[in-house]
Design a protein around this nucleic acid. Sequence first.
DNA 1: CTGTATTTGTTCGTATGTATT
DNA 2: AAATACATACGAACAAATACA
Lengths: 81, 81
Amino acid sequence: MRFEIDQHSKTPSYLQLAGKLRDAITAGEYGPREAIPSLKQLQQESTLAMGTVQRAIQVLEDEGLVYTVPGRGTFVSPAHE
Amino acid sequence: MRFEIDQHSKTPSYLQLAGKLRDAITAGEYGPREAIPSLKQLQQESTLAMGTVQRAIQVLEDEGLVYTVPGRGTFVSPAHE
DNA sequence: CTGTATTTGTTCGTATGTATT
DNA sequence: AAATACATACGAACAAATACA
């Protein structure tokens, strides 16, 4: 499981996932304009519901760390790496 | 129905509701530090699902127009009216 | 051009948890 | 203890955009 979530943590699942993704991006695992895993992949690799995964992505989007293109995917913002 | 939503509009329901609430707040219908209707009330007066209502509130919260206190309610931000 | 698959977007209904009154 | 109110999470369905054979 690439993105494991502790369901019993006091930190909400969506924030845990957002944190793991943020870490991976700032660590350079996904470069600028590069796609991060799809919602479906993240869902499978985290055992979370789709809605919860989407909420995690929303957090990173609000931070300007990633941007989303409907039908294509979610990508790391050009200014970050 | 105080907050009516057009289910067939191309504008998502949560953005429609957010817009109506924003208008009411900027029109002064709810003053600074004053509570807006509860999620339950909004849900009943809009025929939307709770999750959709909450998403509308989230939009206004992100704008800094309102703030939320768990167990108490959602209030108009002090700087706005 | 025509499907088909992939991916994100919206919405519903429900359940449970946490905070406040 | 009970009622009210917001928070998190699940699972499901359908829509819309995109890519590709």
